[in-house]
Design a protein around this nucleic acid. Structure first.
Length: 111
RNA sequence: UGAGCGGGCCGGACAGCCGCGGGCGCCGAGAGGCGCAUGAGGAAAGUCCGGGCUCCACAGGGCAAGGAUAACGGGUAACACCCGCCAGGGGCGACCCUCGGACAAGUGCAACAGAAAUAGACUUCCCCGCUUCAGCGGGGAGAUGGUGGAAAGGUGAGGUAAGAGCUCACCCGGCGCGUGGAGACACGUGGCCGCUGUAAACUCUAUCCGGAGCAACGAAGGGGACAUAUGGGCGGCCCGUCCGUCCCCGAUAAGGCUUGAGCCGUCGGGCAACCGCCGGCGUAGAUUGAUGGCUGUACUACGACAGAACCCGGCUUACAGGCCCACUCACAAA
RNA sequence: GUCUCCGUAGCUCAGCAGGAUAGAGCGUUCGCCUCCUAAGCGAAAGGCCGCGCGUUCGAGUCGCGCCGGGGACG
C-alpha cells in the first residue's frame, strides 16, 4: 500500500471511539479522525462473540483487501477504525466493499 | 447385490493477475527495491492428562497433609494413553461395551412398604399342663407372614411331635489343596463354610507425584530500600545443606523460537502396541499477530469442522462429502 | 497463558451428608376488602433442576464428558 499502515495500540482505538466521527451501516461501523500527517492508519475490530477465529480472520482480510484496492480513493491523513457488526460476518466481499465506500463517503474522507 | 463390522487415508483441484509473513540471493549509504523457492490442522480447538525445556542452590532424605491411578501381562520418555489377554455383559456373526482392587478390618447409609433390613422380638407351627374351650403357663422350632432393589444359599427328596444343611443328590458362591499358565485366571477336587447391597459413602490396600510456568527465564551497567539473624532459599514440620535479600530503570528490547521421543521407505524381531538396522528427506516461526480478492476450467456444483503462538505424546469434542483394505450375515449365480 | 465460581418458577435465591409430590420472596392471574386505586387478606397457575452418559433399588444432589455465563492474576 502506498501511504497506509495499521492502527495498533489499544489507546488509539479508544481515542477514535471517543473523539472520532462515526457512520453506521448494516454490516459495519466506521470511525474516522483526521490527524496532521501525510499517511493513513487503518484498524479493524471483530468481536470474539461474533464467531470463531477463522470467520473473524476472513472478515478482517476481506476488509483490508477492500481498503487496499481502493486506497487511492481515500483522503490522506486519516485514522480510521472499522467495527464489524454481527450481520457482516457472513457478508460476501462485494457487499463489504460497497458498504465501506458508502460509509467513507458519508464521513467525507473520500477524495 | 443388499445389510453390516473393523482399520487406514483424503478432505477442495488446476491456471492467470493483484497483495501478505519470515528465509535466501542481488542492488542500495540508508529507507527500501528486485528475484527465487516456501508458508496452518486432523483436529491447529477444549486445556482433561503425561513429558521435554527453563528457573527456584542440589532437586537431597524422612514425616504429615493433599492429589492421582486401579483385574493381569506388555509397549512407551511418561501417562488416566496404546496393544494383548482374563472376567462379566451384548450381538446369528464379523465384532463391540465395562472408573473391573478391597464391604470376609472398622464406621456410615438403605426413604416408602414390610413382623423384621442383618437379626433380637412379633405372628405362626408342634408337645405338655391348666381351662370358664375365648385362652393362659412351660418347653421345642426356625418353615409361614400382602411387601421390597435386596428376606437368612437354590431345587428336589429324606427326616421329625413340629421343623431346620439336620442328612442326601444336583447346582451356585466362598475358602483350602492339586494341575495348567508369565499372570489375571481356568479346570479338577475336598464329611471347611453359606457371608444383603452400597466404597462414582467415609475408609483400607498397592503404586506414583517437590513447586511454578516461555507473560518461564533473561546480560553488562545505573539507582534505591532493608540487613548480619528469632532471616531467607516458591504451601506445612524435622534433618541436612547453601546464601546477604528485595525493588525500580535497562526491558512491551534482543534472545528463548524451532532438528524433534522428527517424517518416509526396505529388511529383521514381535500375535500386536512397538522396537532395531540401513537408506533417504529438510518441512511456518509471527508479536495487533502472515493464506485474501478477482477471473476462467471441469466435478456428486458456492466445497464440512475449523487458524500455529515454546515444543512433543495422548484423550475428549466438532466435521459436508469421498476413496482404499480386511472380514461377517442374507439372497442369487457358478 | 494460568486459575476459580455459577447454571433450579418470569426475576432474585434456598434445597447437596442421595429418599417418594422440589420450596421462599417479588412478580402474574383470580377472588375479598374500598366509591376507585394502592396497601392488606385468601387462593391459583407457572419447573423435562443447562445437556448427555454413567454409579445406585432410587440422582436437582454423586462421577465423567460437553454447552453457556461470570470473576481473578498477568
Amino acid at each position: 500500500m502506498e501511504f497506509s499502515a495499521s492502527l495498533k495500540e489499544n489507546f488509539e482505538f479508544r481515542r477514535l471511539y471517543a473523539k472520532g466521527r462515526s457512520a453506521a451501516g448494516r454490516e459495519l461501523v466506521l470511525y474516522a479522525r483526521r490527524r496532521g500527517r501525510d499517511t493513513n492508519r487503518l484498524g479493524v475490530t471483530v468481536s470474539a462473540k461474533l464467531g470463531c477465529a477463522v470467520r473473524r480472520n476472513r472478515v478482517r482480510r476481506r476488509l483490508r483487501e477492500a481498503y487496499r484496492l481502493n486506497e487511492s480513493r481515500f483522503v490522506r491523513g486519516v485514522d480510521m477504525v472499522i467495527v464489524v457488526r454481527g450481520r457482516g460476518m457472513d457478508a460476501p466481499y462485494r457487499v463489504l466493499e460497497r458498504e465501506l465506500l458508502a460509509l467513507a463517503e458519508k464521513l467525507g474522507i473520500l477524495a
